[in-house]
């Protein structure tokens, strides 16, 4: 699709009103939870944005040459912009920072996938002086609260954890060249692709466990049978974190189904712990995505941990309109 074909048609009055209503509801909720709004810049220096973005997103970042200012990047998500702001601020040295944002992002359309360049996002970032899971529960509860504030009554919240799958991937005694194919097989839930990799590169305990985790997709208690194998693989800690989070979510939001799916991670090299996604029956793609990305700030020379999520407001608008499914890809990040 040509870039012109992917240009946003904009929002006329009714949709503009819907968007503003959603943004107000979210910002009000988040302010009440201590999250202060920031307005990250639309144009950013390209090099640090690349350092602060997952590879798949970096490849979709639109670049400009600003006449002697060096290569610039148009905002493709808010996390990189927030990170570049926070990395320069002294108050971020002490205690967690709770930040939120809303606005437009622009992404190069994926090859052969017709989708709009401009989309709307709103989200939260919780920065900590140290890396680690502290704050995950707060962010997960806030994500669930955000869905409730928008009235997405049929939402499902899905949790994953890099610590369940990442260590298994890293311990596989397979050649490095198999890594990309492995990530794609996991991301597509393709048992046949995973088994083909096993056939070519060798079976082992880690590979067997990955195959079993592939279609876990169930309620937390439904996968207790895996606990012994996860313990033997040394990843039980991440599993317990997820169980604890799921229990906290079910207690606070009893009407919100929580699923576990540790293998469906779009940006394997980006997330370092919890991953979050939310879906509705009324839309074919994730309405919310996020997680923990503790390697982000160290890439910008600050030792912070970070966890957050973004709501895809254009998709939520489609849900509100009752007309889901403009063409697209899940994207996220």
């Amino acid at each position: 699709m040509s870039a012109a074909g992917a240009l946003s048609p904009g929002l006329w009055t009714a949709d503009a009103a819907r968007l503003r209503r959603m943004e107000r509801a979210l910002l009000e909720l988040w302010a009440g939870e201590g999250y202060a709004e920031v307005v990250p810049p639309l144009l950013l220096p390209a090099a640090p944005v690349r350092a602060a973005s997952p590879e798949a997103l970096a490849s979709r970042t639109l670049r400009l040459d600003a006449n002697g200012e060096g290569p610039l990047a148009l905002r493709a998500d808010f996390t990189a912009g927030v990170a570049l702001m926070a990395a320069r601020r002294l108050e971020c040295l002490d205690g967690p920072q709770r930040l939120c944002y809303e606005g437009t992002v622009a992404r190069r359309p994926a090859a052969d996938r017709p989708e709009e360049i401009e989309t709307f996002q709103a989200g939260c970032e919780r920065l900590s002086p140290l890396a680690g899971p502290e704050g995950d529960e707060e962010v997960a509860l806030l994500a669930a609260g955000s869905l409730a504030a928008l009235g997405i009554g049929d939402a499902v919240l899905e949790l994953g954890h890099w610590g369940l799958v990442g260590p298994l991937m890293e311990r596989l005694p397979w050649p490095e060249a198999a890594r990309e194919e492995l990530e794609q097989a996991l991301n597509r839930k393709s048992r046949s692709a995973l088994e083909s990799l096993v056939g070519r590169h060798g079976e082992c305990a880690e590979a067997r466990l990955l195959v079993r985790l592939l279609h876990l997709g169930g309620r937390p208690e439904a996968v207790e049978s895996l606990a012994a194998d996860l313990g033997a693989a040394g990843v039980l800690g991440a599993w317990r974190e997820l169980r604890s989070l799921a229990a906290a979510l079910e207690k606070a939001f009893p009407g919100l189904p929580v699923r576990l799916d540790p293998t469906d991670v779009r940006h394997w090299s980006y997330y370092t712990g919890l991953t979050l996604k939310a879906f509705s029956r009324r839309h074919p793609f994730a309405l919310l995505s996020g997680g923990r990305y503790d390697s982000l700030y160290p890439a910008l020379a600050r030792p912070f941990g970070a966890c957050g999520f973004a709501l895809h407001l254009d998709r939520l608008l489609e849900v509100e309109r009752g007309r889901p499914s403009g063409p697209g890809t899940e994207g996220g990040g």
Partner: peptide, 15 residues
């Protein structure tokens, strides 16, 4: 192959 929409997969009642 049998393929599934990413969103719809979460709501299919039984495999």
């Amino acid at each position: 192959h049998l393929i599934a929409n990413r969103g719809a997969y979460r709501f299919l009642e039984e495999p």
